[in-house]
Design a binder for these strands. Structure first.
Lengths: 221, 221
DNA sequence: TGAGTCAGTGAACAATCGTACGCTGAAATT
DNA sequence: AATTTCAGCGTACGATTGTTCACTGACTCA
């Protein structure tokens, strides 16, 4: 830990340039989220202290309560921030082209890019998916269910899944979602470009295996 | 929490019947493991307190150090206890019969039974697999890698995987392991016999999809 | 301009925490 | 029988925790 500095340094209460009231509040809220996400790279939410977060964000412990009632509440907000902006992206990738191989490549690239851009968010996600804080667990489950649902309806529109039952489609969508989360975790664990490429390689092959399986699903089931 | 009682009550220091020295030590060690596992049903390891565990096990905080140096060290021991006894079981199930459908049924039943018999162990496993305590995470990863390896060599001996590359076999083994962990988590989340049966149903179908995929893997890859 | 709102402060609180010390007494060893 | 070993205890330490309270002062709005 090089610096436990005040992340707000030059923006707190100084009557600087920008800052309507609520804009400033949002900025501190964001500072809390950012600071906690940084702290969460080395520990899990259930051991994260309220004071610890406030300190890292540069506000007093009591100030925390102006934004969140709890550490769990902050966790739920983090879930929102991590996954909220990703809805609709999957459908776009699937709709892009019909070529299966290219679709797989695009999907893996998409995950790799997002993970590389905001690793801490996905680390948090993987860590808390089955973590010790119930509200956060539920929030993540709800978001992932939404993803599975979106993926399911995107798959239903595809010609490759004609004749599939809704139940089977849901299962397939769920598997894709789980595969994505697992792939994201492996990208996170991968250190160095070689390991990263390897992770992408096996991720593609896993998706391909699923694709092959679903292509023959109706004939053998 | 109905009772925070002393789990050792009648066995600590009383010159009762049984108990060579090391046997008694093992017994308190086991009490520590059992107590912590119980506490871990509602929280994760990184927020588990040393004093909390000692209190639940009925010994003094200082006594904890006679058995473990850390809470992380206790976590590693829990990993050992959870997965150590399961090695070899997978190979036995796979070797039992050649019929794919029956094999899938046996596997899912195996998981369901183990999860039902010791739910807390598997809850702990799922929670800490990507949890905040590095040594525990590594211990789990090492154990699961061993499982994947065992599964891989079991698959290699199977006639269905003739012509597969070692790399592909490892991927498939890894997917089966991940699927097992996921299935275990779903069994844990399932409340009531209906949800439990449903989890088993989708677990079987997921395995079947993987089987269908691997049956056509060589032709389409 | 004047009154009201409210994000953030600082002090104080009772708890809990991890760790260290020396001690005890039963079991093990000689 | 004398000696050593060592699992567990009791106490104490400083540090940190979550939460509350009355406060301040810059913004907002009439």
């Amino acid at each position: 830990m090089p610096e436990n500095s005040c992340l707000l340094s030059s923006m707190s209460h100084t009557p600087d340039a920008a800052g309507t009231r609520q804009a400033q509040k949002l900025r501190t809220r964001q500072a809390l989220l950012t600071a906690s996400l940084e702290l969460l790279e080395q520990q899990s939410l259930s051991s994260l202290g309220l004071r610890e977060v406030a300190r890292a964000a540069g506000i007093s412990p009591a100030g925390f309560y102006r934004h969140f009632a709890d550490i769990p509440a902050l966790g739920v907000a983090l879930v929102e921030e991590t996954l909220g902006s990703l809805h609709g992206v999957i459908g776009a990738v699937l709709a892009e082209t019909g070529d299966t191989e290219r679709r797989i490549d695009r999907s893996v690239e998409l995950i790799a890019r997002h993970v590389a851009e905001q690793p801490a968010h996905f680390r948090f996600l993987a860590r808390e998916r089955y973590g010790g804080v119930a509200p956060v667990r539920q929030a993540i489950a709800a978001q992932l269910d939404r993803f599975a649902e979106e993926l399911t309806s995107a798959l239903a529109a595809d010609e490759g899944s004609r004749g599939w039952s809704g139940e089977d489609l849901r299962m397939l969508g769920g598997m894709y979602v789980d595969l994505m989360v697992m792939t994201a975790s492996e990208f996170l664990d991968a250190e160095g470009p070689a390991a990263l490429a390897g992770a992408g390689h096996t991720a593609r092959r896993r998706l391909r295996l699923l694709t092959v399986g679903s292509a023959h699903w109706l004939n053998e089931s």
